[in-house]
């Protein structure tokens, strides 16, 4: 009985472990007018969630060729997400606070 439970638990863990990357969402925090990371590497099709933990609004956009997007303005305490479905290197910035810079490398 114990071994069945153990096997079942291992199987569940395995499923979770395998399923995790498909639904993985990388979280980037906007705080003190900075992204909490300068560079990240992700796989094509993965999403990045931008969480505004600041006391002011932020914008999230990219002007990089082949990957332009603008997620609009995020109020404090809100979040926006972007699925990166093309390979390449994309510079993400805030149009209000242009010193905020993040490079997303999509493999």
């Amino acid at each position: 009985m114990k071994s069945k439970i153990l096997a079942s638990a291992v199987a569940t863990l395995f499923v979770v472990a395998v399923a995790a990357p498909a639904s993985a969402e990388i979280v980037i925090t906007q705080k003190a007018k900075k992204f909490d990371k300068k560079k990240i590497s992700i796989k094509k099709g993965e999403a990045v969630k931008f969480v505004n933990s600041d006391s002011i609004s932020h914008n999230t956009h990219s002007r990089s060729s082949g990957g332009k997007f603008d997620l609009g303005v995020s109020k404090p305490g809100t979040a926006v997400s972007k699925v990166f479905d093309k390979s390449g290197k994309f510079k993400v910035r805030c149009t209000i606070h242009p010193k905020m810079k993040l490079t997303v490398k999509v493999n």
């Binding site: 609004s57 914008n59 603008d70 609009g72 303005v73 149009t95 209000i96």
Partner: peptide, 15 residues
Amino acid sequence: GRGKVVPGVVVMQHA
């Protein structure tokens, strides 16, 4: 101002 550069962002009008 910046509203011409980023016309879709409300807070950039007159910015």
